[in-house]
């Protein structure tokens, strides 16, 4: 690996790729379990996103600092232990400050350990880049994950509960679409977002093909 020249320049793309082009939820389909399980309301989604982002940035920093000391054979185990340490930290902090949020997310805070996004970043980015760059990249990924969770949580809370961030939106006579806050709704809303993105992509492709075809005819 030392033969490959390291590219240390931090570009806008280092940060932005996690938010759009390689969005962990909508594009790479990673970290599905917390994505679907805790997004029954926008506030839960935000809490989960923030906790994951913290673990992501902190573990990226540590992995990146020790990247030349960790033997290749036990690297995955080492990463997992590093991640587990930070998750334990978050677990105790959240228990201390917001009992309500902690109760709402249950075991899913501890299950951040097995979120593939974090291990994926440690393996793909932090283990071969300098600390600052890996942290910027991890922050982008974390933000992308949080935004995706908010997309899901917002839609599910509006439809399933008639509110957003706990504020009622539609008045008293709104009949909540309960299925949306139940497990099935999670699958449906995520499928809906994926279809939307796919449709946008196909439409863009169709347009560029039409333009290309028109040019060709002339």
């Amino acid at each position: 690996m030392s033969l490959i020249k390291q590219d240390d320049t931090i570009t806008v793309d280092t940060f932005m790729e996690g938010i759009w082009r390689e969005n962990p939820v909508f594009v790479m389909m990673l970290g599905m379990c917390p994505t679907l399980a805790v997004t029954t309301s926008a506030i839960n989604a935000l809490g989960m996103g923030a906790a994951t982002t913290f673990v992501l940035i902190a573990s990226s920093l540590l992995v990146s600092l020790f990247r030349n000391l960790i033997p290749a054979g036990v690297r995955i185990a080492t990463y997992i232990v590093i991640i587990a340490t930070f998750v334990t930290l978050v677990d105790y902090i959240m228990q201390a400050y917001s009992q309500a949020l902690y109760a709402a997310m249950g075991a899913f805070i501890q299950l951040i350990v097995v979120n593939c996004i974090i291990l994926g970043r440690a393996e793909a980015c932090a283990s071969r880049n300098k600390p600052l760059k890996s942290m910027v990249n991890a922050a982008g990924m974390g933000l992308g994950f949080t935004l995706a969770l908010l997309c899901l949580g917002g839609v599910r809370e509006i439809l399933g509960n008639g509110s957003l961030f706990g504020l009622p939106l539609f008045g008293e006579h709104f009949q909540p679409w309960v299925i949306m806050v139940l497990p099935a709704g999670g699958f449906l809303v995520l499928a809906g977002w994926l279809i939307l993105f796919e449709w946008l992509k196909l439409r863009k492709q169709g347009r560029s093909q039409q333009v290309g075809g028109a040019v060709h005819e002339h």
Binding site: F187, L190, A191, L194, E198, L202
Partner: peptide
């Protein structure tokens, strides 16, 4: 439909299965 191919379709099947298990 081409827009639903792949992951979106799997998720919709998941939703139906999940409703059945409810």
């Amino acid at each position: 439909p081409s827009v639903t191919q792949g992951a979106a379709l799997s998720l919709m099947i998941g939703a139906l299965l999940s409703m059945a298990f409810m």
